[in-house]
C-alpha cells in the first residue's frame, strides 16, 4: 500500500510541474514515476507499521497545525522588526542559550518540533542530541514562553498521542 501512496504523490508532482495533459506527456509521467517508485520507494515513510487510517488522521492534524504555525511566523517577524528598527528593542536584547529536554520519541516529530521552535519568535534550535535540545533565545520573556512547552504539546498531540498520556 505504501508504494502506491508514494506513486500517487510523485504523479501529482509531475502533473503540476509539467502542466500538459495530453496522453503522451501523462504516459511519460506514469512510466518515470513507476521507475522512481520501484528504485526508491523505501525512502519515504520510515515507520510502516501504521495503517492508512492513522496516516490520514496524522496528515489532517498536520494540515490544521499549519495555520497556527503561520500565525507564529508573523509574530516572529514583527518581533524581529521591533528589535532591528527601534532603539528600545535593541537595548532589551539579551541573547543566551537554553537547554531543554523533550518527551518526543520519533525522529520526524523531533524534526517538526525543532523547525517549529526555529519559526517561533526569538528562538532558534542550535543542536539536537538524543532528546536534549539546545535553543538560542533572544530575551528573558521568550525563555519563559519556551519553557512552558506549548509547542511541544501541540506536536505531541499530532504525532504521538501515546506519549502525552504517560507523562
Amino acid at each position: 500500500m505504501y508504494p502506491f501512496v508514494v506513486f500517487v504523490l510523485l504523479l501529482l508532482n509531475w502533473i503540476i510541474f509539467s502542466g500538459k495533459f495530453d496522453a503522451f506527456h501523462l504516459g511519460l509521467g506514469v512510466i518515470s514515476c513507476l521507475f522512481v517508485t520501484w528504485i526508491s520507494q523505501d525512502f519515504l515513510f520510515y515507520d510502516r507499521s501504521k495503517g492508512l487510517k492513522e496516516r490520514m488522521h496524522e496528515a489532517w492534524a498536520f494540515l490544521c497545525y499549519i495555520p497556527w504555525l503561520t500565525w507564529e511566523v508573523v509574530l516572529a517577524n514583527i518581533h524581529v522588526l521591533k528589535l532591528a528598527m527601534t532603539n528600545k528593542g535593541y537595548m532589551e536584547m539579551a541573547p543566551r542559550v537554553v537547554t531543554i529536554k523533550t518527551i518526543l520519541k520519533t525522529d520526524f516529530a523531533k524534526f517538526v518540533f525543532a523547525n517549529s521552535i526555529t519559526l517561533t519568535p526569538g528562538t532558534i534550535t542550535m543542536l539536537v542530541r538524543g532528546d536534549i535540545i539546545h535553543v538560542h533565545v533572544m530575551s528573558q520573556f521568550l525563555e519563559d514562553d519556551l519553557l512552558s512547552g506549548a509547542i511541544e504539546k501541540k506536536v505531541a498531540e499530532i504525532f504521538e498521542p501515546g506519549v502525552l498520556q504517560k507523562a
Partner: peptide
C-alpha cells in the same frame, strides 16, 4: 527591510541569524 537592517545592526553571528532566518 527589517531583515536587512537587522543583518547590518545586530552585534554577533547568532543574533544576525535571528534576523536572516525569519525575515
Amino acid at each position: 527591510l527589517g531583515a536587512a537592517v537587522g543583518m547590518l545592526r545586530f552585534p554577533d553571528f547568532y543574533t544576525r541569524m535571528h534576523a536572516a532566518g525569519k525575515g
